[in-house]
Design a protein around this nucleic acid. Structure first.
Lengths: 187, 187
DNA sequence: GTTAGCATGTAAGGAGTTACATGATTTT
DNA sequence: AAAATCATGTAACTCCTTACATGCTAAC
């Protein structure tokens, strides 16, 4: 997760650790944050693995600042990580982080990720529905409200995904049409 | 978190670890799950701290099953833990777990927890609003969609909380009125 | 010149997971 | 008798946090 975020942010431009944390806070704001205590060790690890490299090892006039850049190996690593979307129950943040880097992915990859996410949410919703039917009489009003609101929220998320999937599909078709038109004109 | 959940579930009735995990899955379903690898050590820890005790140390006809019961110290521990609600950014589950045990709390405690939760969500919403205004031009459509949907969901959660706070307040007033009526009749 | 923010790092610890190991009891 | 599932536990590991330590640079 952290590796994915670091590599994704560095694709946008080389930066040092401090900057990375600020950009992370800017983009993924209240959804996800990391502390320096995990960020700096992660950068060192990625560097030792060859996924990132230091741009200015002994820089400028002596100011100690480690600017990192993604290597080719890092780009590959990013691609692998981004498609490794967990079909997990509570990977809510995983999808958000991936979404923040959607612009770097192919439309097909984007649609694939969104559909996998949709399936997870659909399963969660079905699970809650079953639970509601089974335990309606046995649980207290607070737990009931929790379940109902959980279902509501999940379905709200599904509708959001559906809209995005739809928009993505439309964009793909649009691109295809333009390509076909151009082909037709040139033939 | 785990300690809170264990103590809360045991208030409902003494159980052994395996049962505890099943009850946890039943109530907090898709929101939160734990593995045996953390459940059993947690039970031992709580036992050594005197928060729970084993009911049938050498039970029945030899079947090795450790049934746990909450002690008085455990009840106190539960009360402390339940009010120790994190004002954290991403303690979404913390509130859900507490909500599942609301029936054991005083109405005032319930309202207090919900209002604290509301404040956290309000801050998150305001944060997202600010971010949206500040970065609208700079971020891509996916990140924008993420932020907008984040705001939507947060506000949906706030409305849900408002309804629950309202219902709780009405219940309190109703109880007070009944008490006053009784008092009036008896005087 | 001192406060605030920039910049990097380490050590210890928290809260869990996965994988493994073991054996009893119930169901088919 | 085999398969499922009940039941408990440990060891190693993951992924993060908090608290601490250090020093530089800009602003007031």
């Amino acid at each position: 997760m952290l590796d994915l975020a670091i590599l994704g942010l560095l694709k946008e431009g080389s930066m040092h650790g401090y900057q990375l944390k600020k950009r992370l806070a800017e983009t993924l704001g209240p959804f996800w944050q990391v502390s320096y205590g995990s960020l700096y060790p992660a950068l060192k690890r990625l560097q030792s693995q060859g996924a990132v490299e230091v741009v200015f090892p002994e820089g400028h006039v002596g100011r100690r600042k480690n600017v990192y850049r993604v290597t080719d190996a890092g780009e590959e690593r990013f691609s692998r990580l981004v498609e490794e979307a967990a079909a997990d129950r509570d990977d809510d943040n995983g999808f958000r982080v991936r979404l923040a880097f959607f612009r770097y992915l192919k439309p097909e990859t984007r649609i694939g990720l969104m559909e996998r996410r949709r399936a997870v949410l659909q399963a969660r919703s079905a699970d809650l529905k079953e639970r509601l039917a089974a335990y309606r009489e046995r649980v207290d009003s607070y737990t009931l409200s929790l379940m109902r609101h959980g279902m509501d929220s999940t379905q709200h998320d599904i509708r959001w995904l559906d809209d995005m999937i739809d928009a993505e599909r439309k964009a793909v078709r649009h691109r295809r049409r333009r390509a076909a038109t151009k082909e037709g004109a040139s033939s």
